[in-house]
Amino acid sequence: MEIISPEGLRQDGRTPTCLRIIKCRLGLYDRPNGSAYIEMGNTKVLAAVYGPREVRSKNKQNLDECVIQCEMSRIAACGGERVRRARDKRTRALSHQIAGVFHAAIRKSKYPGSQIDIYVQVLQEDGGVMSACVNASTLALIHAGVELLDYVTSCTASINKQTAILDATNMEGQAGCEVTVSLLPNKGSIVSLDSSHTVHRDQFEAVMDLATAGCQQVYQELFSQVEAYLQDKHAIMSHR
């Protein structure tokens, strides 16, 4: 099956440089300090943040540091096939990656001797899972009031033959390598770069540039959602 038609369109009607539709919400739950939900196409993720709070493990306690942990899980049939375990080697590896991303983004000096826990659950998986988890976590941290150096946005790009494609689905990602970039969009700093397969050096720059541009597009979507959420909260508070 051809990923890109002779007319230059993908199976879902997008052009190669077009993002899937993003839908997101902040503040779904009262129990966590922060929570968020995001859809990037058919990839759907929930994120919850607890903290800053006292470090639970004395082995990890350091009065000059802030401990940032992430735990990612998947529901049984998130990818269409039932998985045996909610957390496997893949999800544990992604958990460490996500924690590393936010080590670079959270203003840790504000929370010495504290712990921030990020819990991410993949409800449905159709490409760009790492990116959706990072973007949902960013919204949940903002909702929790955790001070960030900048938004963290993430996006993927893949290559189909000689054409770079943005925000690939599972089917599109199987056709070639997939590069995931996590970015501080206002600072222009890349905090994470991951590739699912080897990328030829002649193609790498085009794929990375497209993923980085996608991060900026994601930022506009997340920023608009946060602004709308804050305006709604202000309107509610002003009528009390």
Rank of each mutant, 00 (worst) to 15 (best):
H103S: 08
L184V: 04
Y119G: 10
E125Y: 01
V134W: 01
Y229I: 08
R240W: 12
A47D: 05
S182R: 00
E205H: 11
I98P: 00
E2T: 13
A36I: 11
A36P: 14
H234P: 03
Q217P: 07
G173P: 06
S57E: 13
Y119I: 11
A136S: 14
I3H: 00
Q216M: 11
Q203C: 12
I4T: 05
G113H: 06
L148R: 00
I165P: 02
C155R: 03
L166I: 10
D194G: 06
K60Y: 08
A132E: 02
Y50E: 11
D88W: 09
L94E: 05
C133Y: 05
T212F: 08
K60W: 07
A211F: 12
A36F: 11
G27Y: 06
T153Y: 00
Y151A: 07
S95H: 00
R87K: 14
S73N: 10
P6N: 11
A206C: 14
V179D: 00
T153C: 13
G214T: 04
A47C: 15
G100P: 01
M40N: 05
A157T: 06
R84N: 12
A99K: 02
M237T: 12
Y219R: 04
I3M: 09
V181S: 00
L94H: 04
Y50G: 08
V134I: 15
A144N: 02
A168F: 01
L184T: 02
S131T: 09
A213W: 06
Q231P: 05
L139P: 03
